[in-house]
């Protein structure tokens, strides 16, 4: 069973993603802000970390920096979700170290497809 961390401050979106993933038997930990996400990352190793860009305490980018800086366990794949759709913003996110990027609004099924692809690849 693959373990996934979802960091997203919007409860409804968390519900959407968690529902979708749990139907496919992923284990999902939910974090509502950057701090919670960091706490999880320090405790667990995840196959994939899904990060929202705009989050309280630490933004998605700040979290990537912390992950890259080795404050967390292992190196998980990172998928960034963001409403920031402009090309230069995407570029910045990928440059900062995210492995994948998905724009909001997103299709939950396509997200699932993507996640399965990433997880299986690993």
């Amino acid at each position: 069973m693959k373990r996934i961390l979802l960091a997203e401050d919007e409860a409804v979106l968390r519900m959407l993603i968690v529902d979708t993933l749990e139907d496919e038997d992923f284990i999902v930990d939910e974090a509502a802000d950057g701090q919670e996400a960091l706490d999880y990352l320090k405790m667990e190793k995840y196959d994939l970390v899904i990060l929202d860009y705009m989050m309280p305490v630490y933004t998605g980018l700040e979290l990537i920096e912390k992950i890259k800086a080795g404050e967390t366990l292992g190196h998980s794949k990172i998928l960034m979700l963001s409403a920031k759709s402009q090309a230069y913003e995407q570029e910045r996110i990928l440059l900062a170290g995210a492995d994948y990027f998905m724009e909001k609004p997103f299709s939950p099924l396509k997200l699932l497809e993507k996640i399965e692809e990433i997880v299986n690849e690993a």
Partner: peptide, 25 residues
């Protein structure tokens, strides 16, 4: 722009996402 896109996209993402689930599952 980022706030609006964020603020608009978040509910939109919910609306679209759940609708998709309803339609496909």
């Amino acid at each position: 722009v980022s706030t609006v896109s964020h603020e608009l996209r978040t509910p939109l993402a919910s609306v679209l996402g759940f609708t998709e689930l309803l339609l496909n599952k």
